[in-house]
Design a binder for these strands. Structure first.
Length: 288
DNA sequence: TCCCAGGCGGTAG
DNA sequence: CTACCGCATGGG
């Protein structure tokens, strides 16, 4: 068991980070701490008097480096916030609201599967399905006398038949998960190659070949795992907030996607991904 | 009960 | 190329 304590972290709020919709495997405990499974490690984080205490058993490498990498602690979010706050008063307000958001460095494989599951689904159920997959196909780890499961590897998940997957509550996404797992396992799509590609467009083109990965899911993967800050995943909430703020179309479903992308590019200038996160979180938490 | 969910794939026009 | 539809399931 290792502990890492950090003081005076800028732009770091546990609720904002874990509940802004980017990740699915973190849960809040009664003491206000959060526990999550990251790669082969279970991590607990708690905020105590302006200090953040990270606890975990790190099986791959140095625990402190692991935390710094995963929580994106090398990135200075004040620069992002400063730029975006100048866009207009809406951005300013959304940033004040989601002040402590940070984009986690999530595992590419896990991110792909998780966001295929997210299609036409709600967050509580997405989390349930991912837990069930992990329980059935992941590795068991104990932490503080509790049992956790790692996210299944492609090898392990490939043992599941389409029927098995249907039994996990995946619904119509069963075949998509099955096919994508196979494509990745057989290296028809090489994830390491994607990580090393030059441009966002090259990465997106490759991701779109995976079954169940369309424009929205690809952009989520690009933002949440490949750290492409210039992508702008458009879901119902983002469409809603962009329409309310800038377009004022009576029928928000009719708002053209290209129009939204152009607008986002023009306004947020390479920081569409970050802007999207603040706006998404703000809109979803504030409601209506 | 009924509507909806961080959409996608397929098909028709 | 765009427009539409069906899809499984369960949360609220």
């Amino acid at each position: 068991m290792e502990t890492y304590v950090l003081e005076n972290l800028d732009s770091f709020n546990l609720i904002h980070i874990f509940e802004c919709g980017q990740c699915f495997r973190w849960n809040k405990n009664e003491d206000g701490s959060f526990t999550g499974v990251v790669k082969n490690t279970v991590i607990n984080v708690i905020e105590q008097e302006n200090k953040f205490v990270f606890t975990g058993v790190c099986k791959d490498g140095n625990f402190q480096e692991f935390i710094k990498e995963y929580f994106d602690l090398e990135t200075d979010y004040s620069i992002y916030k400063e730029k975006l706050s100048k866009v207009d008063s809406y951005l300013k307000e959304s940033i004040e609201f989601g002040n402590g958001i940070r984009i986690l460095n999530q595992d590419l494989w896990e991110c792909i599967i998780s966001f295929i599951i997210s299609a036409n689904n709600n967050i509580p159920r997405i989390k349930k399905i991912i837990e069930k997959l992990s329980l059935n196909y992941g590795e068991k780890i104990e932490f503080n006398n509790k049992v956790y499961y790692t996210f299944p590897t492609p090898e392990k998940l490939s043992k599941a038949t389409v029927e098995d997957l249907r039994g996990m509550g995946l619904g119509f996404r069963d075949k998509r998960i099955f096919n994508t797992t196979k494509m990745i396992l057989e290296k028809q799509i090489d994830l390491d190659k994607i990580k090393n590609m030059e441009t966002t467009d090259q990465m997106r083109e490759e991701l779109l070949k995976l079954d169940g990965v369309g424009p929205k899911v690809a952009d989520c993967i690009l933002l949440f795992s490949l750290k492409r800050m210039d992508v702008f995943p458009i879901d119902v909430w983002v469409r809603r907030v962009m329409n309310d703020l800038y377009i004022h179309n009576e029928n928000e479903e009719k708002v053209n996607k290209k129009e939204l992308l152009n607008l986002a590019e023009e306004k947020f200038l390479g920081l569409q991904g970050i802007a999207q996160q603040y706006l998404f979180y703000w809109k979803r938490e504030m409601g209506a």
